[in-house]
Simulated assay, not measured.
Amino acid sequence: MDTSLTADKQRTPDTITRVKPIDINKALGAQIRAHRRRRRWSRKRLAKQTRSSKKAIMRMESGAYRITVRRLYVVCKVLRVEPRDLVAAAQAETEIG
């Protein structure tokens, strides 16, 4: 039996916010892409600034890459956005009723 489901059933909807893992990756990627575009930066420029590859940025923005906390902080610092704001915006997009 999956204990995570059992734990969720014991909590009321007011005490837990459920988020699909795949959706949060896509939502974080969409937020990163939006902030990059606001700065009018190419993926190549963001890759250079974060010492990543262009392919890694592409995968991050598409949600195919599970972004680590360390990488999230690096990207946020370069894009001049608070990590908590980026995560909150992504979470708001993925909340499940």
Rank of each mutant, 00 (worst) to 15 (best):
S52N: 04
K44P: 00
R33N: 07
M60E: 03
K77T: 10
V74N: 07
Q49K: 13
K77A: 11
Q91P: 03
I67V: 14
R80S: 12
D2E: 05
S52W: 02
W41P: 00
T94R: 03
P83S: 09
H35I: 01
R33P: 00
Q31E: 10
K9E: 03
K26H: 04
I96L: 11
S4Y: 15
L79G: 03
I32A: 06
H35S: 07
A90C: 04
A89M: 01
T6L: 10
Y73T: 11
R45N: 02
L28V: 14
R18F: 15
T50N: 10
R18L: 15
A47N: 06
S53H: 10
L5Y: 12
Y73V: 12
T6S: 14
R80H: 12
A56D: 03
R45V: 13
K48W: 06
V74E: 11
D14P: 04
R36H: 05
V19H: 08
D8A: 13
R84Q: 10
L79Q: 01
D14R: 13
R37L: 08
M58H: 11
L72F: 13
L28F: 05
V69N: 02
R70T: 06
K44C: 05
A88S: 12
K26E: 05
S52R: 06
Y73E: 13
D85W: 15
Q31C: 11
S53G: 08
K48D: 06
E93S: 03
A89N: 07
L5C: 14
P13N: 10
R59G: 00
A64M: 05
V75G: 00
Q49W: 02
E61T: 05
V74K: 04
E61D: 11
R37Y: 01
V19F: 08
K54E: 09
R37W: 01
T17Q: 10
Q10F: 08
T3F: 15
R70P: 00
T12R: 14
Y73Q: 15
N25G: 02
T15K: 14
